[in-house]
Lab assay of single mutants.
Amino acid sequence: MPSETPQAEVGPTGCPHRSGPHSAKGSLEKGSPEDKEAKEPLWIRPDAPSRCTWQLGRPASESPHHHTAPAKSPKILPDILKKIGDTPMVRINKIGKKFGLKCELLAKCEFFNAGGSVKDRISLRMIEDAERDGTLKPGDTIIEPTSGNTGIGLALAAAVRGYRCIIVMPEKMSSEKVDVLRALGAEIVRTPTNARFDSPESHVGVAWRLKNEIPNSHILDQYRNASNPLAHYDTTADEILQQCDGKLDMLVASVGTGGTITGIARKLKEKCPGCRIIGVDPEGSILAEPEELNQTEQTTYEVEGIGYDFIPTVLDRTVVDKWFKSNDEEAFTFARMLIAQEGLLCGGSAGSTVAVAVKAAQELQEGQRCVVILPDSVRNYMTKFLSDRWMLQKGFLKEEDLTEKKPWWWHLRVQELGLSAPLTVLPTITCGHTIEILREKGFDQAPVVDEAGVILGMVTLGNMLSSLLAGKVQPSDQVGKVIYKQFKQIRLTDTLGRLSHILEMDHFALVV
């Protein structure tokens, strides 16, 4: 994948999101292997301009796509893939009243899908469409860049269908997702969380590099694949309309690839034109409109599966009536509230959605109805927002919020430890010299600072030695090549209790 991002070429006709291997024109390309080798690009942008032909009021008969309808489940399912879809609609009884809503608040519980998330729908649909058009064949390999849930859905379907599955996901995604993927037989590649989507090191860039190296491999490409919004247009939206008897006044959905909100909203605009569509985008993402909503100094966020630093091709923002931004604290607070007060075992993005819903639905009156999409299960986040310690460490809970008995030293300040200034190293000294210094002084790690004293990161003896043994660096290389740029900081005025929580999850903390 090139470091400079080429513009994806656009073909003359058809839909841009065809499933299957992508040609340089962004659509299915038939021909000899030699032709494909000559024409197939190194990668295709996940934010390529959409060429979708959908228009409100256009006859369904003019759609270029294969459409399906929700099917009634048999008493005995032939395999677990038949437990994807037909998820329950559940009334939220307490939270709406707590925040003064007059309307009825309903939750579409997508964590009841077989793999635990709304992404099971698009995973199965992308595979079925690729099999139907002859792209996927027995023994082929599926590769997908994902925040985890699409990966789980694909790995689940691949396990049943017999495909090899490789999932490329950023490091910030939970260990629970990784464990589930491994249990399903998927191979996992992790990428830096802070890598831009168009960087060769991003999950998108690495996935395309693997595709170019592995024979008979395919990126189904949830960011561009029409099967993504079509899955929701054909099934999720129809289920909502049936469950609500066609009567709903507002739908609120958090947005990642945009397939969920695009597919549902398009069908609702056709069948229930008075329904307002509300999009939820986390602070630090750029999906919301108008652009002024996205202006923030924050560039990272903890909530998973929603928000991006690019506009995915499948996201149709014209069908969203209003956007709201959400933050991590309210997302996790509301997710825990949904679990504790409503018994809905949902993930953090569901918290984002409901946090926005109780604001947006203030305009609705008694007798009206708001539906929220709860995308995934708490299963993926047992060591994250479900953990009091994690919430404390991230600053989303305060010590006084917890009532468990603490040891005698818990409320003492870090400054009472009488710490001395640490050994520091410059980023320009060599790895070999740094190892000598650390061994001589008896230290395992040291902060790396520039000549102005600005902290650049941390270097550890173990990481340097393993990097040297693996051949990633040489003793003569500058130590700046092996620094940890993500590390926890703590102030002298913070409590030892807070430091204790940090050290339970990290090997060190830097006192500043």
Rank of each mutant, 00 (worst) to 15 (best):
S63I: 15
R164P: 07
I84W: 07
D221Y: 14
V90Y: 02
P273C: 13
K119I: 02
T236K: 07
I167R: 07
E37F: 12
A158Q: 02
L156D: 00
W208Y: 14
E128S: 06
E4H: 11
D79Y: 09
A8I: 10
P78S: 15
C244N: 03
R58N: 09
C109Y: 05
G148D: 02
S147I: 00
K83P: 09
G205S: 11
A195I: 07
V168P: 03
T260Y: 00
L105K: 02
A24V: 15
Q7Y: 12
H203A: 12
L248G: 01
N228D: 01
K36C: 15
S3A: 11
N194S: 13
E37I: 09
K36H: 12
C52M: 03
N228E: 02
T146A: 04
K25E: 12
T68G: 13
M250D: 00
S123Q: 07
K83A: 10
V255M: 11
R161L: 03
K172I: 01
L156H: 00
W43M: 12
I152N: 05
L56R: 15
T235C: 15
G139D: 04
T141F: 13
P46I: 10
E176T: 01
N93V: 03
G139Y: 07
L101E: 00
P33F: 03
R224T: 11
K267C: 12
M126E: 06
P200G: 08
S27R: 08
R190N: 08
P59C: 12
Y233E: 00
M250C: 01
E176G: 06
L42V: 05
N212M: 09
G151T: 01
K102M: 08
I142Q: 00
L124I: 08
V180D: 02
I214W: 04
P33G: 11
N225F: 00
G246M: 05
T260S: 12
A107F: 02
D120Y: 05
F99A: 14
A107E: 06
H232T: 03
W54A: 06
K269W: 05
G246I: 05
I92A: 03
C103P: 00
L136A: 05
A24I: 11
R125E: 08
C52A: 03
I219T: 07
P2T: 12
E201H: 09
K75H: 04
L42E: 09
G134E: 07
D120F: 05
L56H: 09
D198R: 06
P2V: 10
L136Y: 07
V160S: 13
S202N: 08
L124F: 15
L154V: 06
T135G: 03
T13R: 02
T262D: 01
G100H: 01
K102H: 07
S19P: 15
D129E: 13
D129P: 04
P33C: 07
R121S: 00
L230I: 12
R161E: 04
L156I: 07
T68R: 10
G85N: 07
T236C: 05
D120P: 05
D234F: 07
N113L: 05
G20D: 10
H22L: 09
G205R: 11
L241H: 07
I142H: 00
G139Q: 05
R45E: 13
I127V: 13
H22Y: 08
I240N: 00
P49G: 02
T87P: 06
L248F: 14
A38I: 04
Y233P: 00
S199P: 02
G205V: 05
S147N: 02
M126N: 00
I152P: 00
R190C: 01
L241Y: 12
K137D: 08
Y223K: 00
H218F: 15
D86S: 10
G96A: 13
S254K: 09
R164Q: 04
G259H: 00
R132C: 14
R125G: 07
N225S: 07
S174Y: 00
G100K: 08
I76C: 07
P215S: 08
G134Y: 06
S61C: 15
Q7L: 09
F112K: 06
N93K: 09
T5A: 03
L77K: 07
D120E: 08
P12W: 08
R18G: 13
A183S: 12
P273W: 14
K39S: 03
D179S: 08
A195H: 05
D47R: 05
L42M: 10
P64K: 07
Q243G: 02
R51M: 07
R209V: 08
P74A: 14
V189G: 08
R161K: 14
T141S: 14
R266I: 11
K172S: 04
H67K: 10
V168D: 03
R190H: 06
L248M: 15
